[in-house]
Design a protein around this nucleic acid. Structure first.
Lengths: 234, 234
DNA sequence: TTACCGGATGTAGCGTCGCTACAACGAAGT
DNA sequence: ACTTCGTTGTAGCGACGCTACATCCGGTAA
């Protein structure tokens, strides 16, 4: 035919499948449509990929290549926590820009899914949390911190894709909440009293229900008056 | 035939579809298999549901009924934040126990998905965050807090389903991180409590001497026990 | 009783899907 | 020139979602 170099047909099949998936994210796609787009019959596709899942796997790998390509374009800021922030935003941005890819990469629930392709970006994240841990900036092990960041990052991205509504405020809020959780820094570190209220409310069994309620009442009053007292000093 | 009361066939079709979905979560299912399980032909199914999506919608509604049935069985603890904790754990437990239902309810990425069925549990969550906001315990608006809790709760649940590995530690860590983020409290209870003790001790005139002494005693005891409880999470 | 009527169900079939056995083509190697 | 192997087409299978049409059956009114 039209001068087909080796591997060209296979390449075009992957691109056509990716285009079809991107055209209707989350929906299934037809192998015949892929073949028609390339101008090839089905046995050709099966010669290269063996099954529909084989083609899907190739598309997924292409998706991770694209994702990591964008990600490696960012240079490190030198600060691991700051790099986690940048990686978070890049993750969300990629998901919203490529919902078809992203759904296959992180949204598939079938039991036969293999987590192997996800290992590359997960390793990057783990290296960042490990560096943060080495600097003594985490209150949890590096593995747990990486899992925490990954699960919330995926959650906020999938949610925005499903609702078809980008929500940068929510993404930023969850991002900062997650970072605060793994670094142990609160978002309002000075307000010890409200933190104490939360601790008491979450463990009513320690002091008893009535005592806990009274304790909370006292802490609240203490907070109001103490705040006034310190205001007067200024 | 065998004495079919009104609506019986429709009911059995929903149950059969739910069983097939539960048998292979995330996978597609065959309408013919549903019909065979009930002992009915396909036009009967189409008489009741109109399309495959119609049957799926009925199954989703059944899933939310089941979920809310379990959830309404829990009585309120009186503390909205504590209720959010219980709701979080119930959410995760339901997802892990019913991955087929859960995937349809919260994991579907198709653009034609309607968020209407999700409005019922979301309203419950929003009422909890609204109560917490009324008590002055949130640092963000109630709507944003509810969205934050929902997105992380779904994220951690979907992740465990996909990886086919329950991880109670991760769920608890993300839960506490999320609550800390919306309440503005840090995740280091010992610091917050000892700081609260200092504040109380430096302002004995606000609550009175005897009350302040008792308050400090309670905070100390709370610190010992709560620290032990949170150690188990790490 | 009888005729009718509307909901529930079956028969048969359409077009499409993933997948495959088999053969034909063409460039590279001997 | 002949073989070999990678690539592609022809034709078809079973299963899918879906539907036009016919049939059955229980209640209702003449």
């Amino acid at each position: 035919m039209t001068g087909s170099a080796t591997g060209d047909t296979r390449e075009r099949l992957i691109v056509a499948a990716a285009d079809l998936i991107a055209a209707s994210p989350g929906e299934d796609f037809s192998l015949r449509a892929v073949c028609d787009a390339v101008g090839v019959k089905m046995p050709t596709l099966y010669h290269f990929f063996g099954s529909k899942q084989g083609l899907v796997d190739a598309v997924i790998e292409r998706g991770f290549d694209l994702y990591l390509g964008e990600k490696s374009a960012m240079e490190s800021s030198g600060d691991p926590i700051q790099d986690i922030r940048a990686g978070w935003d890049a993750h969300v941005a990629f998901g919203l820009a490529n919902p078809g890819f992203y759904t296959l990469m992180y949204g598939k629930v079938s039991p036969g899914v293999s987590p192997a392709p996800q290992s590359r970006p997960s390793a990057i994240l783990l290296s960042l949390t490990t560096r943060a841990a080495e600097q003594g900036r985490l209150v949890v092990p590096a593995e747990q911190a990486a899992a925490h960041v990954l699960v919330t990052n995926i959650g906020v991205t999938l949610r925005q894709i499903i609702l078809a509504a980008a929500d940068p405020e929510l993404s930023a809020a969850v991002r900062e909440g997650t970072i605060a959780a793994i670094t142990g820094t609160g978002t309002r570190p000075d307000n010890a009293l409200s933190a104490a209220v939360e601790i008491a409310a979450s463990h009513p069994e320690i002091l008893g229900r009535a005592e806990t309620q009274l304790l909370i009442q006292w802490l609240t009053r203490l907070g109001d008056r103490a705040l006034d007292a310190s205001e007067e000093l200024r």
